[in-house]
Design a protein around this nucleic acid. Structure first.
Length: 231
DNA sequence: CCATTAAAAACCC
DNA sequence: GGGTTTTTAATGG
């Protein structure tokens, strides 16, 4: 394996406080891997023998229900830790992670986790912060499912993806990974038909432009209004 | 208001 | 071409 550059991870929150020697030490223990779009990074229920840092691309976290239907729990933008079952005191991954776009990860054996937590300043607190944020989002999603109409939930979902991974393109901000209407339906607890109708209506009103698997938000402000956020 | 069903068009390898 | 994605309409809870 070729040597990894220290600048890859030095600026990321979990490693920000570490000196050069520590970064080197971490990188030398890491395995880097490329994941094709649509392939699994790890599978829910499997033994959590490694934890990962998503260097590039977007990871889709999926829970498969007993019935076989799947729910997209969240998307993870680059720079975050995933598969951190050891932080939750678990021996197995709680969910499956799929590369939503071509992705690049670093990973380490889980047995190194305790050492990371104790030896590297800032790693533990960043981990807790990440876990806390994900819990928060989960609570927001539950509240939205219970109280908001479908159009509001879909609007909020699109906005969240834009905020997490959006990049400027001409005419607006584009979600930086491929998303289908079916994907959005799985995230928001509705059907692809309803999502399709909503996006068509928004496009007619000039709020978004979408082609297959691509969504560009042209009027974020109006979407925010639709999402019913804190008036 | 929204899910379901059905059918067809549009897209991409 | 053939599978996938998207759109549109009709029906019913």
């Amino acid at each position: 394996m070729k040597k990894l550059d220290e600048s890859l991870i030095a600026p990321l929150p979990p490693f920000r406080k570490l000196d050069r020697a520590q970064i080197r030490e971490i990188l030398d223990q890491a395995t880097s891997r490329r994941h094709d779009e649509g392939t699994e990074i790890f599978r829910g229920g499997d033994e959590a023998d490694r934890f990962f840092l998503l260097l590039d691309g977007v990871a889709r976290v999926v829970r498969v229900l007993p019935g076989g239907e799947q729910v997209i729990v969240r998307h993870i933008p680059p720079g975050q830790l995933i598969g951190i079952a050891p932080a939750l005191g678990r021996a197995t991954y709680p969910a499956t992670a799929v590369a939503a776009s071509e992705a690049l990860t670093l990973s380490w054996p889980t047995r190194l986790w305790p050492g990371f937590m104790s030896r590297y300043e800032g790693f533990a607190t960043e981990t807790w912060a990440t876990v806390g944020q994900r819990l928060d989002q989960l609570h927001d999603d539950m509240a939205a499912l219970a109280t908001q109409a479908v159009e509001q939930r879909v609007a909020a979902c699109v906005l969240r993806m834009v905020n997490q991974t959006g990049r400027a393109v001409e005419g607006g901000i584009e979600i930086a990974f491929p998303v289908t209407r079916a994907n959005i339906a799985e995230m928001t607890g509705t059907t692809l038909h309803t999502v399709s109708r909503l996006l068509s209506a928004w496009e007619k009103d000039g709020l978004v432009e979408s082609r297959r698997k691509r969504i560009v938000v042209t009027q974020p402000h109006k979407l925010v209004l639709l999402s019913g956020a804190t008036a």
